[in-house]
């Protein structure tokens, strides 16, 4: 459910970490001698962003060992022209419908247990897999990317995600040639997320992409943010980041990747198909039935800026939709 409302994140500018300090953190770490310790950590085995040869899985690690993955080296291909959103805002102004419909979700989400966290890869694949999320993360080529994020509620943020390309996971899964869609499900545990006690909703939260979208270079599985492991309220331990689509497509706390030849019936599509459809590509010219999408409020500021088609990522993704019904792509 989305409503246009007065933002609750209007904190003083003094609360924000200066961008220059954030961008310079690697130099600071290096000066402190921490960077070399992180790089030398023997448990950290990563691949380049394009490689898919996998090392054997390792034993579950401690939180401190997990933290050693971050900050990941930044991939400078994904540039942004906006200042980064302050971490305080990006980690306290969240939607996470399993925990409710309000904006104090970050506190409620702390109840989510992250270890163990089993991830299943199944459906139309060569060999179904189930593994611990941390083992999966260790097998993947972690990088940091700066992405804009555009919520369907007309606010936006710009954050440094850490994670790996979704295409690397697709390569790991080895989908059959008949697979056309990738479904992604979040957890389903009403004892943790009280919203899931409402059994009439179609839990678990499900989102999906076409396989062409999932293997587009922008599609990213985020495991960290601001150079640290992902906070629970932001979708730990694994969440999707597809910056050319409205934020509700970027499913959080994923437990299952399912390959299919059928388009998934997604959570919000089942609730309100005219408002939150399967494609949900950002387009300022196509308003939500109850509000305009022409501009977006930058989280943590009083600034509004014009929204761009595909959230400004058209050069990467517009070709995915050539020849398709343009009307349905933006809702």
């Amino acid at each position: 459910m989305a409503l246009r409302k007065k933002p609750g994140w209007a904190l003083a500018d003094s609360a924000a970490t200066p961008e220059s300090a954030f961008n310079d953190r690697r130099r600071l770490l290096k000066a402190m001698g921490i960077g070399s310790i992180v790089l030398a950590a023997p448990a950290v085995v990563r691949l380049s962003e394009t490689a898919v040869t996998l090392p054997p899985p390792m034993a579950p690690e401690t939180a401190a060992e997990q933290a050693a993955f971050y900050p990941a080296a930044r991939n400078v291909r994904y540039r942004i022209a906006r200042p980064l959103t302050a971490e305080t805002h990006a980690t306290t102004y969240n939607n996470f419908y399993e925990f409710g419909s309000h904006k104090r979700i970050w506190q409620a989400a702390q109840a989510l247990p992250l270890s163990p966290w089993q991830v299943t890869i199944d459906g139309m694949v060569e060999k179904p897999l189930t593994m611990d999320a941390h083992d999966l993360i260790k097998r993947m080529p972690l990088k940091e990317r700066l992405y804009r994020h555009r919520c369907v509620e007309a606010w936006a943020m710009t954050v440094p995600w850490s994670g790996f390309p979704l295409s690397a996971l697709v390569a790991l899964a080895q989908p059959l040639s008949s697979a056309r869609y990738l479904w992604m499900d979040t957890f389903n545990d009403p004892s943790v997320a009280s919203g899931q006690k409402a059994t009439w909703y179609p839990w678990p939260y499900r989102e999906g992409l076409t396989l062409a979208e999932a293997t587009n270079e922008l599609a990213f599985i985020a495991t960290g943010i601001y150079g640290k492991p992902m906070p629970k309220q932001n979708g730990a331990p694994l969440r999707l980041a597809v910056p050319w689509k409205y934020g509700f497509k970027s499913v959080k706390s994923i437990t299952r990747f399912h390959f299919s030849d059928k388009k998934p019936s997604t959570f919000w599509e089942r609730l309100a198909p005219r408002e939150y459809g399967f494609w949900a590509n950002v387009n300022p010219a196509v308003p939500h039935p109850r509000w305009s999408q022409a501009s977006e409020k930058l989280l943590g500021t009083s600034e509004s800026v014009p929204t761009r088609i595909y959230n400004g990522y058209g050069e990467f993704v517009a070709g995915l939709y050539d020849g398709m019904d343009q009307k349905s792509l933006f809702m």
Partner: peptide, 16 residues
């Protein structure tokens, strides 16, 4: 739609 809307109004504008 009304179930969803009233939940959002209640939690966001009155009290979660």
């Amino acid at each position: 739609g009304s179930l969803n809307l009233i939940q959002a109004i209640t939690q966001r504008y009155i009290h979660p």
